[in-house]
Design a protein around this nucleic acid. Structure first.
Lengths: 182, 182
DNA sequence: AGAGTTAGGTACCATTTGGTACAAATCAAA
DNA sequence: TTTGATTTGTACCAAATGGTACCTAACTCT
């Protein structure tokens, strides 16, 4: 019928996710983006409307990939305490300067891009729910406390990621969480 | 000797602070910046080397102005509890979508701009110290706990500001802090 | 008043930006 | 093998970008 795609759309979007995650939207120009996605201009603009659409697709991919992985990791956590489970959110990875794509997107585009704000809100909600489940499972908290506490830990998480972008030092978050959780 | 300045340098930098704070570095183009500073190109490039230098000056002004004000407010806080004092950090202002310039700068430029990272680290340190002083004054914590706790609350603060950029809802942070502080 | 020095204003510039046009290439179906 | 449909690659474009050149204006000192 027609010429088939030569690139894997999922891999391309993943490439977009990687650059946008590290560099942000405005700081990523088209050559950067094309290189990361492994596409030429022609293919890119056929498959995606424009840079912005690619960015939203990258955000969605982050949701499917990273957020989902984090959520399931929290859900399946077999550690002894809630603090130990949640401390996985605060392990500075090898490339901590990427930070968290949600946080980066909120800060860069949240104020004037409703589509971004909606997606980041959605993803933040998924993280918050997973955190709450950990707390509920632990049974250490009253139902009343659990919601506010999950939100507090989510805020801690974003603060951690934001500071990580400019190279914040690491601390023993398992201990800190232990204190926060009482 | 020579023609005197017609503009107030401090006010100009303050204008730069305002735009950069809201829009970030890359999203602020020269016309935006000049308007905010009340300068023409000629005066701008005479007084500042380039856009980047103006940004750093804006960061420094933020330190002198906003950070200093926050620090002294915390230092002079006469509220009954540490939680009440610290909750002032979590009041969503009228324009909460500006967020916190420190947080915005860390996220946007931290990874690849050492001069920015250094300044944000400095300012974050000042905030952390002020928070710690509040905790010390309250006497509710052991000296050992105080440092980690101040850092935790600083992280909460940046998380709050990051989420505020994309319109996070507000909560009763006085109560939450009360719980975090035990 | 004239010279010297610096600020203000603007026309201009090279580069980079995101995006488009269009021809060549690659497939399936007839 | 021809036709039809879609992808790929690239030349191209207008607009926006940050920055400079340079002339005029305003002030001080002699």
């Amino acid at each position: 019928m027609s010429r088939p795609r030569e690139f894997d759309p999922e891999l391309a979007v993943q490439g977009a996710m990687d650059v946008f995650w590290v560099q942000g939207f405005k700081a990523t120009n088209l050559p950067d983006l094309l290189t990361a996605m492994g596409l030429t201009r022609g293919s890119f603009y056929k498959a995606f409307r424009d840079k912005e659409t690619a960015y939203l697709a990258a955000l969605d991919r982050y949701d499917e990939l990273v957020v989902t992985e984090t959520v399931t990791a929290l859900t399946n956590c077999k550690a002894g305490s809630a603090a130990q489970c949640l401390s996985m959110l605060f392990q500075s990875s090898g490339d901590s300067r990427r930070g968290c794509f949600i946080c980066n997107a909120m800060v860069e585009l949240g104020p004037d891009h409703p589509q971004v704000a909606e997606r980041t809100g959605q993803m933040a909600g998924r993280l918050r729910d997973a955190i709450r489940d950990v707390l509920v499972r632990s049974g250490d908290q009253t139902d009343e406390q659990v919601n506010g506490l999950a939100d507090t830990i989510l805020h801690l998480y974003f603060g951690f990621q934001a500071m990580g972008r400019s190279g914040g030092g690491d601390a023993d978050w398992s201990l800190r969480l232990q204190r926060v959780l009482q």
